[in-house]
Design a protein around this nucleic acid. Structure first.
Lengths: 336, 336
DNA sequence: AAACAGAACTAAAAGGTTTTCGGAAACGTA
DNA sequence: TACGTTTCCGAAAACCTTTTAGTTCTGTTT
């Protein structure tokens, strides 16, 4: 049990024990030149024995690099920030970076406060994770460190942003349905003011147009909930019984949809094929039948954003909004 | 646009601009004595003008306090770590602390690595967030900083741990059912090797015993999934049609349960009252009917853990496993 | 006028590390 | 021996802030 009051061991202690100067100890431990192999070994053993951990504060103060990044999120309660955050954390962890987590809860004041704190702590860079794919105000201006936006893009095209390609994701889903021979495809999605909803609806429209297939009815906008999915299913089954496939804007909606369809005695996928979005396992593999779904590869997105933040820190910024491809996970709800 | 290569502004720059010494500038900015009000004002304005941010590294190096804590989680993908994490982050944010997030992904090696990194960065303390309520190995030994465990307790009773009172939570649920006049109460829950499942089953047993009401059948252990909930419902409806209430170990299980009950034409809550656990909104308010559920108050738990970490950093540790009360949220699935 | 007290300010040290540059030792060559 | 070269090591500066222990200044009392 190390006493909590005992002064932490410094490189000076290591140097003493090894019988060398501080400078030599530093070089030995950092793999620098100009140290005899034998001396280096002695220093390393001394450090080991004292379980020496270099003081990152002192190092950072001197080098100007803290090997720390800030992760600014607006709403990490939300389901989508988390995987992005994890992917980023993963990439940073591999690069020996530490992550400071700040959740602004969608409050601009709080966000400003966090930015100040992070600057004070001299983080090397910043990742801003959106709460939705909607674009958000840029904070890059006047910040002395690079910033990368993930999930939701910055409104400044000069910034570096990484977002899922929802238009492409919808296209994947629709092409799959078309390939299965479905020709009466409807779309049920979330609130109209979500860019995610708009993008996916647009992807559907474009893809259907390319194939020369008309969309079955207008896109139905509602909430991102099972309740809305069920409600939409009832409306569709009543109003447009000819529909043979539905592309849902989220797995929650799709879960409600298939539940209602099943309840009405129609069968998925035989009568109606259903595709969800998000590939959220608590829904996609729990419904009857399991849902085919579009996966936004959010962990990869987070990781990519982190890697590009590294690059930006090294002065190699990659401005622009980068759209990362989605992936279709096929399950029983579209098995033909 | 500040040039990224320009040296950061230091207190020395502020002092120059204000025409005072560095010491005076420091005292002025930190609200210390021995500074004339007029001088202080001049310094503050100078700092404002240069948008000076004190270098936290230098400060930390000197004072030995980084005002940073590590948040070590084993599985933040899990649904339960997140609110705890948020609560903690909230408490820290209010105290001007920064949080370093480390997700060990359940890997002991990675955890060791993170601990070393955090020590290197001289964090003032550590919160360990469990991936389940199961106890986990202590890491406090040999660490020179205080550690608080949240959600899952440490296996060392000398450590400071905060966990939800699942026994009490179950008691809340069961007493509610008893108060509604239900006397044939069954229990469907998750895997037997989860402490959460065992604790809740125990809470149910104790409470029923106290009331002199026998449990309807053995506790049914399964998975934490809707699928299992549905399956259990079918078994129960077939095998024990007399059951008039079911306490489910999670909202996911409960969601599956009510879905299957509904499908079989029995009514919730008229024929069978159902209670879930977790109060996970994507399920509890989306099922038909909405679920009465036990809320573990995880944000409060996280916040409490953080506050006690503060105390421990100040030398006022509170050893032991602290069980925090749960809360019953009543909805239609038990409305009588 | 001298001595003093208190207010306002400053020089300098400390904190732990990395890096630069100079120096010493060891070795080979003339 | 004298000198150049290489190899290895160490002294000291630098990073930025806080705090201690003065120092100067102003005004008051004897």
């Amino acid at each position: 049990m190390v006493s909590r009051r005992s002064r932490a061991v410094t490189i000076s202690d290591v140097a003493s024990l090894a019988g060398v100067s501080i400078a030599t100890a530093s070089k030995a431990l950092n793999g620098k030149e100009d140290v005899r192999a034998e001396t280096r070994q002695r220093v390393i053993e001394a450090a080991e024995e004292l379980s020496f951990r270099p003081n990152a504060l002192a190092r950072g103060l001197l080098t100007g690099q803290t090997r720390t990044v800030g992760l600014l999120t607006s709403d990490s309660v939300g389901r989508f920030g988390i995987p992005v955050l994890l992917g980023a954390e993963d990439a940073f962890g591999a690069g020996e970076m530490a992550v400071m987590l700040c959740d602004a809860r969608g409050d601009a004041i709080r966000e400003q406060h966090y930015i100040r704190t992070l600057l004070s702590r001299r983080v090397d860079g910043l990742i801003v994770v959106g709460e939705s794919t909607n674009t958000r105000p840029s904070i890059s201006r006047d910040l002395p460190i690079p910033v990368v936006y993930a999930y939701g893009a910055s409104n400044d095209p000069q910034d570096v942003s990484f977002v899922p390609d929802d238009v492409g994701g919808a296209a994947l889903a629709v092409r799959h349905l078309l390939a299965l021979g479905r020709r009466r495809i409807a779309h049920v999605t979330g609130p109209m003011d979500y860019k995610a909803a708009a993008d996916r609806a647009q992807g559907l429209r474009i893809t259907l147009e390319e194939a020369g297939v008309p969309q079955a009815g207008e896109t139905l906008y509602g909430a991102w909930s099972q309740r809305w999915g069920r409600h939409a299913a009832e409306m569709l089954l009543m109003g447009q019984p000819e529909v043979d496939a539905v592309f849902c804007g989220s797995d929650q909606i799709a879960a409600g949809f298939v539940e209602a369809v099943r309840e009405r005695g129609r069968r998925v996928p035989d009568d109606i094929a259903v595709i969800g979005y998000d590939n959220w396992d608590v829904f996609s593999i729990q419904t009857r039948p399991a849902l085919t779904s579009v996966d936004m590869n959010l962990e990869i997105l987070g990781r990519t954003a982190a890697q590009h933040l590294f690059a930006a820190i090294d002065g190699k910024a990659t401005p622009g909004v980068h759209r990362l491809p989605c992936r279709l996970v096929i399950r029983d709800s579209t098995a033909s």
